[in-house]
Simulated assay, not measured.
Amino acid sequence: MTAVDFSKTSLWVSLASITFNPLFWNLAARREYHTHWITKIFNGDKYKGCYAIAITIFTLGLVRDFLYKQALLEQPEWTFLDNSFVRGIALVSFASGMTFVLSSTFMLGITGTFLGDYFGILMDERVVGFPFSVLDNPMYVGSALSFLGSSLWYARPAGLLITAYVWLVYTIALKFEGPFTTMIYSKRTTDVKSDIKRANSKKKL
C-alpha cells in the first residue's frame, strides 16, 4: 500500500484551497491598496472594508481546514504513526501552533492581523511582544504547526506532504508580503517627514 494516494480528488482539492487562500488575500489586498476597491464598496469606510476581508479570509480558512481534514480521512493510515508517542507530539504541535496564531491575533488586533495596513490602517509601532519576540512570522509558523499536528494525530503520511506544501506556499507568500508591507510603512515615514518639512517651511515664512 502506498503512503500517499494521489488518485484521491480530495487531496488535490485540499492543495488547491491551500494555494488559493494566500493568493486571494494578496491580490485582493494589493488591489485595495492601489485602488481602494473594497473601501469604495463600503462608501469609503476603510474599517468596514478591512472587517469584510477579515471575515472572508477567516471563512476561507475554515473551508480550507475542512477540505484538509476530508483529504486526510481518505488517505492511507500509517501504523508506524499510530501510537501514543506520536499523538503526544501531535498535541504539542497543534497546541503550539494555535498558541502562536491566537496570540498573534491578540497582539495585532483584527485590523493588524487581516491586512489593515493595505487599507491605510497602520500600527503605531512595531509589535515586539510574544510571539513576535520569538518568531518573525508566528501566524504562518503556527498555521503550519497546526497542519503538522493534525497529520500526525490522524497518522496520515499524506498530511506530512500537505504540511510541507503549506510551508512552501507560505514561504512564497512571505516573499511578496514582507517587502510590500515594508514599503507601506516606509512610505508612511517618508510622508510624515515631508509633512514636517512643509510645516517648518510655513513657520519660517
Rank of each mutant, 00 (worst) to 15 (best):
62 L>S: 06
99 T>Y: 04
96 S>H: 02
29 A>G: 11
171 T>C: 07
90 A>G: 09
66 F>M: 12
136 D>A: 09
56 T>F: 10
33 Y>N: 13
91 L>V: 14
80 F>H: 09
116 G>Q: 08
80 F>K: 11
73 L>A: 03
114 F>N: 13
149 G>A: 08
71 A>K: 03
91 L>W: 04
194 S>M: 09
90 A>L: 07
127 V>K: 14
164 A>E: 02
62 L>P: 03
145 L>Q: 02
29 A>V: 07
8 K>G: 02
107 M>V: 12
39 T>V: 10
112 G>R: 06
192 V>R: 13
105 T>A: 15
120 G>Q: 09
143 S>I: 14
101 V>S: 07
176 F>Y: 13
127 V>I: 15
186 S>Y: 00
94 F>A: 15
133 S>M: 07
53 I>Y: 02
65 D>F: 11
157 P>W: 00
156 R>F: 03
112 G>Y: 02
47 Y>R: 09
16 A>Y: 00
141 V>Q: 07
68 Y>F: 15
150 S>D: 04
107 M>F: 02
51 Y>P: 01
137 N>V: 10
46 K>T: 11
124 D>Y: 05
174 L>W: 01
9 T>G: 10
82 D>H: 10
60 L>A: 11
12 W>I: 09
130 F>R: 09
70 Q>T: 14
28 A>Y: 02
175 K>L: 15
35 T>F: 11
